[in-house]
Every structure is written in structure tokens, then in C-alpha cells.
Design a protein around this nucleic acid. Structure first.
Lengths: 349, 349
DNA sequence: CTGTTAGCGCTTTCAC
DNA sequence: GTGAAAGCGCTAACAG
């Protein structure tokens, strides 16, 4: 147990250590920075004082003096409770943490306004960079941050109206593949369930769905398309409505795991056989006793990639400013259970 | 779009604004702090310069000058990918965020060493306080941080060897209730599955399990007790071994949701009827088609409570130092599906 | 109403 | 080897 500080609440400073050791502040710094131009004896004495006072260097003051950033990376997501984002956070933190940077989280709860405030705050805190999953349409605050010299990396959704590195999932390609799988099973009445049009991924996935059906000569029944649900409860309700239509769809493509789970609950409740294809894998998907195919991708990797892009910007400003980079992560189809063709009984187990 | 900064990479400072506006730095500060002793005309001029230069105050310098902390709260957890911890993080961030504090996350990946480094780093960054879910036994680094005047709040696991506010779940009580429910169904061969003894919650839950069985006159078959699994795969394997015993248990109490899910998978795979009771609720638990009872609790609330304890320390150091406070959150039993008595066929659906 | 001085804790530069 | 001075960006405290 170290000696208690002189006055509680007041923490020892470099000068306190210097006084205690009978040297100058400069010498203490040198010892702490492993500068070799200091005698062994002095070093010992200083180290002893450091221990005696329980001194801890003040990183804040240090980085202020040094001019460079705070050693913090801001991470702005819409909902950390969603495993997708917490894994992304882990990925980012893992990569930047290996370079001595810490991650500051900001949760926007889907609010663009919160996002703007958060980003402003992070900039004011002099974060070295920001990884953001933009919440909505207006991204002027991001453009501003970027313009002010804070590197911004967009994850999962692209920058709009300004240039920034970004890492995306192959939303369109994944949606095409998922929809094709349903078509291949013979389904023609294929519904869509996903978040509102303000969400970029949703737009792309819906586009993939539409194009695929069109290419197969299937006309999309607009009553089958529900853009809106953002959580399981909303998705369950919307799916329930689709299933209650006079001629309900025989298959549903769900644009993210919230919607897939909601749809699953509705299908189970209705006791009806409806084929499900979803975007995003999720835990226990294989245990649901209903055939289900999902387009899976690695959200840790999404975060790691975002972290790498950011690090590249931080490390290599010397290399000039190469154009913004884009990374697209592939998706992979996973089939749970044996899928079946459309029919009155349907493929339910 | 604001004018570009003079030199890229160099950001405008208070003095730049002052020069631009033809006033002193002090006046700019006053405008920015809404000090009323500034003429409207001057205010306008300053504001215009701020906008023209795209000036953003440097919070780091500010907090250094003001002496108070960085406005950051450190959050140290073992695994952010676990929804339990991400919700806890949300709870903490929600509460402290409402008071203008930001949350810095640290993920220890169960390593006490990482935890020690992280805490040291956070202290050096002058965080205002730390919320930590201690990874293991040795907590001297936490004691040290606390001794150095950084308020520490322990979540989910209590401080050991030093005094600190903490918020716990009623691990023992919840385990008792869960075990009693299995006993009430007539089960006598009740197994246990949980993390290693280094995890405090696990110890408490195991104790509850043992005491309840003992109180009912049931001797615990030590072959039925598996302390070890920390993830689903490990739990599934361990549960599989229990089920493969000559006289397998007819019921399992699982000490957290990783173990519950692993056990569920093993039971499903074995096609055997084994009653399951678990700690922690989880998504889709009601959809598994197997009777299951869980002790549920609110991990957001755990985080919020931790945040509140911390805020109280930060706000009220004037009130002297009241003894460390402890908050214990209750658990609530939830029954999914219809439970059944032990039997050769068992309660499987 | 506005400006000057001093200094938060640290470190670079230049002396000794 | 060691120290003194100056300053990172900002703001109390005291002038004027």
C-alpha cells in the first residue's frame, strides 16, 4: 500500500516528485522516459520518490504539450445493445488498442441530433479519429469533423456528401443471393421486411431483392414490402400482417436480424409454413426448428477493418492524402434446417 | 462548408480567433462561456471569427487548466461481445452521459493483466472514475486506483481487499430459487454447470445450489458439478459429458446464459429430456421448444446503478466520505414452456 | 466592458 | 549529467 497523498483529492505532480527526490522536474521526466543521460544513482532516487508518492504521470498534460492527439478514438454507433454493434466495437477497439489508443463509445439511439452532439464533443476532446455508423441522412457534422482534420471512417454505411474512408458489407450482393435462394426453392410470392428507407443498408438490400425478383420475371407485390420495423416487436407485428393477407407470401426476405427474429416469431405463432431468408446471422438460429437461410458476415471484421483504415490515416499522413478508400466485406449464405418449396402446409417443421 | 484551416493538420486556437476578431483571448473565452460582460457587437464579431476559422475549443487544455478531471469515465469489462456487458455499458453510459461525461471502454478478455494495464492507463488519462467488472482474484490495481483518488465502482463482482461502492446481482438468492424450482418438480439428480471458481458470481451461484440441495436433504453428486465452461462450446461439451454418465442428472442448473445455451444444445442433441434452469435471460429463450426456467435480471439497470454510485461519489465529495455502498439487484424467475417431472422420457417437447 | 498576468502538468531547447 | 526557461491551449484573478 503506497503512502497516502499529502492532501486527499490532490494528486502528486512531477514537481512533487522532483522536490521529494531533490532534483529538477526535467530529471524526473528523463527517468520516466528512459532517457539514458541520467546517473544510475539519481535514477534510483527518483524512482523511489515516484513509488513513495504514488505518482502517476498525467497523460492529458503530456499530450497537450506534445501537441498530438489524446490517444483516443471515438466510436459512434446507433445502438450498442445490438450485438452487431458491440462486436463492431470490439473489432475497432482490438485494432486501435494494439496501437495504444483507447476507444470512447457514443451511443446515439438512432438520433441524428445525438450523433451530431457526440461528434462535436469528440472533436472537442481532440480524439485522434472517429469511427461512425451514421444514423441517418444528414452527415454534415461528419463532413465538418473531417474538414477539421479529424479522420472519419464510416462503417456499415457510406459517407454522403463528403469523402471519407469507409467499410461496408456487400448489402446488395447478399440480398441478391438470399432472394435467389428463395426463388430457387420455387417461391414467387416473396415478401420483404426491413428498416425504413433512412437506413442505407436497408435501401441496398431492398434494391437487391427487387432486382432479383425482376430479373426472374416476378412482379413484386407492393403489399408484401414492409419498410419500417427496427426492432423485433415491430417486425413481428408487420410480419403478422403480411401473413394475414388474403394471399399471403410464401416466403419472406428479412433485411436484418431484428426483422428475421420478428418474422420467425410471427411465423411460429401463425403456425404457418413460410420460408425465411434473412440478413445477419444470430445466436441459436440453428435451434429454431424452422428452415432458415441467412446471409452471414463478420461484424468483428467490419470493426477491425474500420480500425485499420483509421490507423492508416493516423500513421501515414506523410504519404500525402490518398483518395478515400472503400472496403466491402462479403457475405456468406448459411442454411439452417432443410428448406422446402412453397405449399399449403409449407416447409414448417 | 467552413473555410479550410490555414495549414492542414494545424487547428485554430483561441488566440487565432482572438487575432482574427481583433480582441484578446480572454474576450473570446467569455463569449464562448456565455459570460454576459461582453458587448453585443464584440460577441458578434467573435462568433463570426469562430465560424470563419472553424474553431473548436480544446477540451483537453480546458480541463487541464480547470484542474478537474477529463470528463471521462472508464468502463472495464471482460467481454463486450457478451450482451450482458454491452447492456451494462449502455446503462453506465446513459447515466453518466446525462451528466456530460463520456465513457471509455476497456475490454480485458478475461485477463487480469490486461485489466491492470487498462486501469493504469485510465488513471493516467485522468478519468473521473472507473466502473469495473473485475476479471479475477487479484484486485490490487483497483485498490491502488481508489487510493489515488479515482473513485472505483465494482459491478457484478464485489471489491476484494479494499473498500469501494459496488452493485451486485442477488446471485445466491437467484440460485436458491432456481434450484428450488427444480426440486419442486421432483428432481433429485440435479447437475451444475458454470464458470470457474475465479468468477465471483459463479461461486455464489454454486453456493446457492449446494445449500438448497443440502437443505432438501439431497446429497450433491460431485460428478454432476462442472465448474469451468465460459463459453457455449465449452458448456455444450461439459453438458454432453454429464448426460453421458451412467446415471445422468435429470436436471441441470446453469450458472449463466453461456452455460444455459450450451446445455440446451447438448440436451437437444442427446434428444434426452433434461430439465434446465439457468441464470440470465436471453433472446429466443422462449422459442426453443424445451421447458426452461431462468433467473432474469436487468443488466441495463446494473449499469445504471453503477453509474449512479459513481456520480454520487463525483458530486458529493463534500459530504465527506461515507462508507462504501452496496446495491443488490433482485432476480426474477421466468418459466418458458411447461416444466415436467423427471422421468425416462422426461419433459422434452 | 476589456486586457494582462500567471499557471494547470508536462517536455523541448538550450545552457551549464 | 543536470537544470532553467518557455510554452502547449485555456481560463481564474485581478487590473484598467
Amino acid at each position: 500500500m503506497p503512502e497516502t497523498a499529502n492532501s486527499p483529492g490532490t494528486r502528486p505532480t512531477l514537481r512533487d516528485v522532483a522536490r521529494h527526490a531533490g532534483v529538477s522536474a526535467m530529471t524526473v521526466t528523463r527517468v520516466l522516459r528512459d532517457d539514458d543521460r541520467v546517473s544510475a544513482a539519481t535514477r534510483e532516487r527518483v524512482l523511489a520518490s515516484v513509488a513513495a508518492l504514488g505518482y502517476r504521470p498525467n497523460t492529458v498534460a503530456r499530450s497537450l504539450r506534445l501537441g498530438h492527439g489524446s490517444g483516443l478514438v471515438g466510436l459512434v454507433v446507433t445502438n450498442l445493445a445490438n450485438p452487431f454493434y458491440s462486436r463492431l466495437a470490439l473489432g475497432v477497439d482490438g485494432v486501435v488498442g494494439a496501437h495504444g489508443l483507447k476507444t470512447v463509445i457514443g451511443n446515439t439511439r438512432q438520433s441524428v441530433e445525438n450523433e451530431r452532439d457526440l461528434v462535436a464533443d469528440l472533436v472537442a476532446r481532440r480524439v485522434d479519429g472517429i469511427v461512425v455508423v451514421p444514423a441517418g441522412g444528414d452527415q454534415r457534422h461528419l463532413a465538418q469533423a473531417a474538414a477539421q482534420g479529424v479522420p472519419v471512417v464510416c462503417a456499415s454505411r457510406p459517407p454522403m456528401g463528403f469523402a471519407a474512408d469507409h467499410v461496408l458489407v456487400d448489402d446488395h450482393g447478399g440480398a441478391v443471393e438470399a432472394t435467389e435462394r428463395l426463388l430457387a426453392l420455387g417461391h414467387r410470392a416473396v415478401g420483404y421486411l426491413g428498416p425504413p428507407a433512412s437506413v442505407h443498408t436497408s435501401v441496398e438490400r431492398l434494391r437487391g431483392y427487387r432486382e432479383t425478383l425482376a430479373a426472374a420475371g416476378v412482379t413484386v407485390d407492393e403489399r408484401y414490402v414492409r419498410q419500417g420495423p427496427v426492432d423485433v416487436a415491430g417486425a413481428e407485428e408487420a410480419a403478422g400482417e403480411l401473413l394475414a393477407l388474403p394471399e399471403p407470401p410464401t416466403a419472406l426476405f428479412c433485411s436484418n436480424n431484428r426483422n428475421t427474429i420478428g418474422a420467425f416469431r410471427a411465423v411460429r405463432r401463425a403456425g404457418r409454413g413460410v420460408a425465411l431468408a434473412g440478413f445477419d446471422d444470430f445466436e441459436l438460429a440453428d435451434m429454431l426448428g424452422l428452415p432458415l437461410s441467412v446471409q452471414s458476415y463478420d461484424s468483428d471484421e467490419l470493426g477491425r477493418e474500420a480500425g485499420r483504415l483509421l490507423l492508416d490515416r493516423l500513421r501515414g499522413p506523410a504519404t500525402g492524402a490518398p483518395g478515400p478508400r472503400r472496403v466491402v466485406l462479403p457475405t456468406r449464405a448459411i442454411q439452417y434446417g432443410e428448406p422446402g418449396p412453397p405449399g399449403p402446409a409449407g416447409p414448417a417443421g
